[in-house]
Simulated assay, not measured.
Amino acid sequence: MANTMQFDLVSPEKRLASLVATQVQIPGAEGDMTVMPDHAPVITTLRPGLVIVSGADGSTAQFAVTGGFAEINAESTSVLAEHAFVGEVASRTALSGFVEDARKRAADAEGEHKDVAEKFVADLVHLMEAME
């Protein structure tokens, strides 16, 4: 059993992080999950939340994501984020603008789409609160 795994965070624009990790906490669409080395292979969708990476050196890194996918296997975890925010001050500023855009889209949505859009806004607000 290996004690570490590779963690990569990528957005559509670029690779944001590449770390050796002992565990990764992921905001899965079906619930939070903690991934450790030798995890069974799985692909899961993400909801807005924090990805928390425990480094092999004892450090912890946090990344805010607005959604995306995580691909997990025994040796690595790759998060493919729709949008990811790195750096506390920049993250809050950028994320607050993202929340306002999501609120506008939710206000314009109808029917089932409105429910989904409002849930997305609630998840984003929860994410901002978790970052404080």
Rank of each mutant, 00 (worst) to 15 (best):
A56T: 07
A84Q: 00
D108W: 08
Q62L: 06
D101R: 13
V89A: 15
F98D: 10
F63L: 06
S54W: 05
A40I: 08
L80K: 00
L46A: 01
G68F: 05
E110A: 14
L80N: 03
T34S: 10
A40Q: 11
E100Q: 14
K114D: 04
V89Y: 14
T44A: 12
A74R: 14
D57W: 09
V79T: 06
E110Q: 15
E110C: 06
A74F: 08
K104C: 08
H113G: 13
V35G: 01
M36Y: 07
G111N: 10
G87M: 08
G68I: 04
E110R: 13
A94W: 02
T45W: 08
E88V: 15
A107T: 13
R92M: 13
I52G: 00
T93D: 14
A106I: 07
F69Y: 15
G58W: 05
A107Q: 15
A102D: 04
G97T: 05
I43C: 04
K114H: 10
D101S: 12
T60K: 12
S78D: 10
V86Q: 15
V79D: 07
S96Y: 10
M36V: 14
E88L: 11
G87W: 11
H113W: 13
A56C: 08
V35Y: 01
I72P: 02
P41I: 01
T77F: 04
A109L: 06
V99F: 00
F63M: 05
E112L: 12
S96E: 14
A70C: 08
A56I: 05
G97D: 15
D38I: 01
F63E: 07
T93C: 03
I52Y: 04
A64C: 00
K104V: 12
K104M: 11
L95N: 00
G111R: 10
D101G: 13
S54G: 08
H113L: 13
A81F: 08
E75Y: 03
K114Y: 09
T60E: 15
E88N: 14
T66V: 06
T93P: 07
G55R: 02
V65F: 08
R47S: 04
A64I: 00
T66F: 05
E71S: 13
K104S: 12
K114W: 04
A56G: 11
E82M: 05
E82Y: 09
V65W: 04
P48K: 04
D108K: 12
I52L: 05
L46F: 03
S91T: 15
F69L: 15
F98C: 11
V89M: 14
S59A: 13
R103H: 04
A84F: 07
I52E: 09
E112S: 14
G58Q: 05
V99L: 12
E71K: 13
A70S: 09
K114A: 14
A64T: 01
Q62P: 07
A81I: 02
K104T: 15
V53G: 05
V35H: 07
D57H: 05
F69M: 12
S91M: 10
R105Q: 13
A81R: 09
H83K: 15
A90V: 09
